[in-house]
Design a protein around this nucleic acid. Structure first.
Lengths: 161, 161
DNA sequence: GTTGACTGCTTAATATGTTAGTGATTACAT
DNA sequence: ATGTAATCACTAACATATTAAGCAGTCAAC
């Protein structure tokens, strides 16, 4: 009767490791009145000039329904502009404003400085391993992963005992 | 005029890698009407017999304000019981119910099976490296990490250009 | 025994995550 | 040309994340 699963909770491990890193950047980002998601978008847009919402979703790992709210708040703050594509009325182009370009040019160096501090503390070798392993997990040059068979669905939530 | 930061967005990389893993477990968990957080709690409680909310917060990486809602929903579903500690009226003991113990004993093996499939696809060596690097990031046998100096706060959000 | 600091859980307010579905628009096959 | 499917952004409903603050219970110094 084994009480413990054979495998440690891997997604939870990622969550913890991510927080261990993020806690060193969060103060910087919130210092400028931004959320972490907003900074991801600003950083990405500063490198890509202009993007459409679904491209930003893909690059920043934010789901489309969240993106709607995030972008409209950023538009209200004057951080981005949204313009419809004339040729395709469904699509939208998102760009940085002068204000947010200025913001990125102030914030970017601070983020980089913090990375250097972290690299110093973690050791460059660990950072290198980190990128390496993460890329192996992500790139995933493997075939589609098998999905195990699931038993018939029981509505545990409403099941009486 | 370098447009790109010298460092890749590491927290975002963790987010992506985590999602790459989680997407293989999410269907299993939601098949039983659970959320990912609920499963984290069930799994932890099944290994620890009984825990107090703040301990669950620590172990499952869920903040206290979220925990309140998650636990009360789980209590309503009959997955956990919450009883106050007589000696200290502030504290609470959370336990699994028979129903949720049953649930874990059904769900656990499925999760393990999926882990084996993933280990197969990723290669055992990658999984080993993964645990190794993650632990290095988390254990953090390093001194307190320096915090860079921040410039005077400007309220960019309301700044007019 | 009061006062004051602290602890543990909760509430409040806002932002985002997650799943499902809608409406308008475009692309495509007939 | 026209009906149909696909695409894209958005809305809705609910759960969780995040920060700040509230509130009752405990503990210790006075």
């Amino acid at each position: 009767m084994s009480r413990k699963l054979a495998y440690r909770n891997l997604p939870q491990l990622f969550l913890k490791a991510r927080e261990e890193l993020l806690c060193h950047f969060r103060p910087i980002i919130s210092h400028f009145g931004l959320t972490e998601q907003q900074w991801r978008i600003l950083r990405t847009l500063s490198e890509m000039e202009q993007l459409e919402p679904r491209e930003i979703c893909e690059l920043c790992h934010i789901l489309s329904p969240s993106m709607t709210g995030v972008l409209s708040r950023m538009e209200e703050m004057g951080l981005v502009t949204r313009t419809r594509v004339p040729e395709d009325q469904r699509r939208v182009i998102v760009r940085l404003t002068r204000k947010s370009e200025q913001l990125v040019s102030e914030l970017g160096p601070l983020i980089e400085a913090q990375y250097r501090v972290i690299e110093q503390a973690f050791g460059p070798e660990l950072i290198r391993q980190l990128y390496e392993v993460m890329d192996k997990v992500i790139v995933a040059e493997r075939g589609p992963i098998q999905r195990i068979a699931l038993p018939e669905k029981k509505d545990w939530a409403n099941l009486q005992f």
